[in-house]
């Protein structure tokens, strides 16, 4: 008996200890420290339901322990035949009614929060971004502002931002745990969800619906900045001239190659790109393709063999692979596409 309970207790302690050691996960990734409206609503509900359930668990375990201590067969009791009880009406009513009451305690805030998070009352007056999930990258289209970008979603802090989400291929799910719960992107209908970040900073987003081999490599970022910074960013992005001549000769050559070849799938500026990510502010990003360390070498390597970084991506086999020299020039061009002072770095400062 002792050993039994001891082992369970040791197990819980071990799990708890490991949790403490690892903190509650990485800041701006974990759902344990919410920094946005949706995440806060979810966490509150998680805590309410967890407390109710811990109460139930304790009741079950207390009865369980008493039963095992008191009624275990002891030596010399082998022939003992206990009273054959059929049941107990009063007890059975108790353990039917009390759980119903406990469930109501959880159900009321559940329904309230469900309607709260689904409300679209102020959609017209808020910033709207059209989000498209693709294998394996995210596209963000600020319709009213005429800005198109990929991978990094810039939003003003402390404001509701409505995301109108759709998929261009298979199902994906948009999840930024520190700001909000997730919403699927379906190919046939647009889903709407709002997010609101409480603090400025860079938040980590992930795809949460199996979408192919690189499902785990579809990371993106939400960059929450002050309203002024956001306006600056919008202005900078709107002022981008895709034809502008880069400074260095290498980048100029890179631009030429890009305009002749890469443009078939990718885009710079506000035109929509049908197949590949928009690279208007590529030089402002902090990751290549969402998951690769940001360096010129990696960028060149990506252009030479994207399959190495994202298995099953749509680029592999669908473009004429540049020579290493060409790739370096394109890299020079892409890396200097830095339209704005507002970047992931500036947002974390």
């Amino acid at each position: 008996m002792k050993g039994w309970m001891g082992k369970i207790r040791a197990l819980f302690l071990l799990s708890l200890l490991s949790l403490i050691l690892s903190g509650c996960g990485k800041e701006n990734l974990t759902a344990f420290t919410p920094k946005g409206y949706g995440a806060e609503v979810s966490l509150n509900l998680i805590i309410i339901s967890l407390l109710v359930m811990i109460f139930v668990f304790i009741v079950v375990m207390v009865i369980y322990t008493i039963v095992l201590v008191r009624y275990r067969q002891k030596k010399g009791q082998e022939d003992f035949v206990p009273k054959q009880t059929e049941g107990n009406k009063a007890l059975e009513v108790i353990w039917t009614v009390i759980p119903i009451i406990l469930l109501i305690v959880i159900a009321v805030p559940t329904v309230t929060a469900t309607y709260d998070l689904a409300s679209t009352d102020d959609k017209e007056d808020s910033l709207n971004v059209n989000v498209t999930g693709n294998q394996y990258w995210w596209h963000f289209n600020y319709g009213e502002q005429e800005i198109q970008t990929s991978q990094d979603l810039y939003i003003p802090v402390g404001e509701k931002v409505y995301l109108n989400m759709i998929s261009s291929d298979v199902l994906h799910s948009f999840w930024v745990p520190s700001i909000s719960g997730k919403m699927d992107t379906n190919p046939e209908n647009e889903n709407t969800m709002f997010i609101e970040a409480y603090e400025e900073g860079v938040y980590y987003g992930k795809c949460a619906e199996l979408c192919g081999p690189s499902h785990s490599l579809m990371d993106f970022k939400v960059i929450a900045v002050s309203r002024e910074e956001f306006d600056t960013w919008v202005e900078d992005m709107q002022n981008v001239d895709p034809e502008a001549t880069p400074e260095t000769a290498s980048a100029q050559e890179g631009q030429e190659i890009f305009q002749n070849s890469c443009i078939g799938c990718h885009a710079v500026g506000s035109q929509a790109s049908a197949v590949g990510p928009n690279v208007t502010n590529f030089g402002d990003r902090s990751m290549i393709a969402g998951v690769v360390e940001y360096s010129k070498e990696n960028l060149i390597q990506w252009m030479l063999n994207p399959e190495e970084f994202k298995p099953g991506n749509k680029m592999t086999g669908n473009y004429s692979v540049p020579s290493p020299e060409e790739a370096e020039k394109i890299a020079d061009y892409l890396l200097q596409l830095q339209p704005s002072e507002i970047t992931p770095e500036s947002a974390t400062e």
Partner: peptide
């Protein structure tokens, strides 16, 4: 029961 609470499930799911 915890995952049944839909808005909490937006995180768990």
């Amino acid at each position: 029961v915890m995952v049944a609470a839909a808005p909490a499930d937006y995180q768990y799911h």
